[in-house]
């Protein structure tokens, strides 16, 4: 196993580190309805992703420090596991023609509104491109973790992970 150099020095995993543990989805997998992406490459005692999935598509097993494994044949990309993950490590990515979408967890105010133009960011927090908010949901069961979908140019799909925080009055 690699020693996760990037994760342990920059704070974020590199694409290679994700690939090494089978957690980097290909663009083919993202075609159409999209696919679930988990970025959880360290053995931590945690399994809400597994227990939150109604399809049994995520397995952590025993010990609960195992890395989560997705069974894409079972996953319906319903997104229920996104707010359940305390590490905010789960997204859903999809591509269609030259556009891409990412569905991600969000716990900052102010929330964006549907139709807003936002800045997409990569894992290192660098702004990549403009994106458009497609949906934002935050039902009771999410327990205060909103789930946002943003659309942006396809070429950024592997790097885009979230949006930049807005209106910080500093």
């Amino acid at each position: 196993m690699s020693n996760n150099e990037a994760l342990k020095t920059t704070g974020a995993p590199s694409l290679e580190e994700l690939r090494a543990v089978g957690q980097l989805a290909s663009e083919e997998e993202m075609e159409g309805r999209g696919c679930l992406c988990i970025e959880c490459i360290e053995e931590i005692p945690c399994n809400p992703c597994q227990t939150s999935c109604p399809q049994g598509a995520i397995t952590v097993g025993f010990p609960i420090t195992n890395l989560p494994v997705i069974d894409r044949t079972k996953c319906t990309v319903c997104g229920l596991c996104i707010p359940a993950c305390p590490g905010l490590a789960i997204t859903i990515k999809s591509v269609k023609d030259d556009r891409a979408r990412v569905r991600f967890p969000w716990e900052y105010l102010p929330y964006p509104s549907v139709g807003d133009t936002v800045r997409m960011v990569d894992r290192l927090g660098r702004e990549l491109c403009d994106g458009k908010i497609v949906s934002i949901i935050n039902p009771e069961r999410n327990n205060k973790t909103a789930v946002i979908t943003a659309e942006f140019p396809r070429k950024f799909v592997q790097d885009a992970i979230s949006i930049a925080r807005r209106n910080i009055d500093v």
Binding site: K8, T9, T10, G11, E39, G87, A89, D122, S162
Partner: peptide, 22 residues
């Protein structure tokens, strides 16, 4: 030389634009 906290925690802070210096 290496960060101490859980990677999922550092990753969510990093993506918000916070620099980590080891």
């Amino acid at each position: 030389p290496r960060l101490g906290g859980y990677g999922v925690h550092t990753a969510k802070v990093r993506r918000a634009g916070v620099a980590f210096h080891c």
